[in-house]
Amino acid sequence: MTIRAVLFDFSGTLFRLEHDSLHEHAELMRALTAPVGVVEGLDVSPEEWERRDLDADLHRSLHVTALANAGAADPHGFYDNLISPPFWQPYPDTAAALGTAIPTAVVSNIGWDIRRVFDRHGVRHLVDEYVLSYEEGVVKPDPKIFRIACERLGVHPSEALMVGDSEEADGGAAAVGCRVEIVPPDPTGERPDALLEVLRKHI
């Protein structure tokens, strides 16, 4: 089946949370932006942690608690930085990958509006649809979120490629018939062209 659309994950796939001020809590940052799993030491159930990406207020509350537990001097300010566009860096081939001639959607488990990040880097117009968990009321790997993305792009799931960094979360697209490719969520300086390599295999 010919690929007629591409679905991209956000964190660890198109962009990565990177900033000098985050070095002190680098391990926590990786845990907070992981697609699945509860942050170690945070006294919440896996179900509650998963719901963080369905509610913006809960997203803030749980992250602030995790930051406070980790000893952040200003957890509220730290959280504001985590959702601030300057703290998110694109991978070197993000713009090129989004600039393909076929429809694209960003499908993300997220509790805030990531469109601002795309605006900052001048690539928002390269994305046809943003399918964000807190707006849709469903999180990956639930098949529904991938169906929503495909429907909005006007393609059958078998005609779509899902590109992400998590076998567990993004791999859920396979359940609806999408092809799936996983890229490593390496630092942006260490992953120059993984997105383009994946696209060359399918398009």
Rank of each mutant, 00 (worst) to 15 (best):
I3P: 14
I3K: 11
V6L: 13
V6G: 06
F8E: 01
F8I: 04
D9V: 04
D9W: 11
F10G: 02
F10Q: 03
S11D: 14
S11I: 01
L17I: 11
H19Y: 10
L22M: 11
H23T: 14
H23C: 08
H23E: 15
H23Q: 15
A26I: 10
A26K: 13
A26M: 14
L28V: 03
R30K: 14
L32V: 08
T33A: 14
A34C: 02
A34H: 13
A34S: 15
P35V: 00
V36Q: 14
V39H: 10
E47H: 09
D55I: 08
D57T: 13
H59D: 12
S61D: 14
S61T: 14
H63W: 12
T65D: 14
T65G: 06
A66D: 10
A70F: 09
G71Y: 04
G71R: 08
A72G: 00
H76K: 15
Y79D: 08
Y79F: 15
L82G: 08
I83Y: 04
W88K: 02
Q89N: 12
Q89L: 15
P92F: 03
P92W: 05
D93V: 07
T94I: 07
A95T: 11
A95F: 07
A96I: 08
A96Q: 11
A96V: 10
A97W: 02
A97N: 06
L98Q: 08
L98R: 11
L98H: 06
V107G: 00
N109I: 02
N109H: 10
G111N: 04
D113W: 05
R115K: 07
R116Y: 13
V117R: 00
F118D: 00
D119K: 07
H121M: 01
G122M: 09
G122Q: 05
V123P: 07
V123S: 03
V123W: 11
R124Y: 11
H125R: 14
H125D: 15
H125C: 05
L126M: 11
V127S: 04
D128G: 11
Y130T: 07
V131L: 06
V131D: 03
L132K: 09
L132P: 07
L132M: 13
S133R: 10
S133E: 03
Y134T: 00
Y134G: 01
Y134S: 01
V138R: 10
V139S: 12
V139D: 01
P141C: 07
P141H: 12
D142M: 08
K144Q: 14
I145N: 01
I148H: 09
A149F: 13
C150K: 04
R152G: 06
L153I: 10
H156A: 15
P157I: 09
S158Y: 12
G164A: 09
D165T: 00
E167I: 08
A169G: 06
D170V: 00
G171R: 12
G172P: 11
A173F: 09
A174H: 12
G177Q: 06
R179L: 08
V180P: 13
V183E: 05
P185K: 04
D186N: 12
G189S: 13
P192S: 06
E197A: 01
V198G: 04
L199I: 01
H202I: 03
I203F: 07
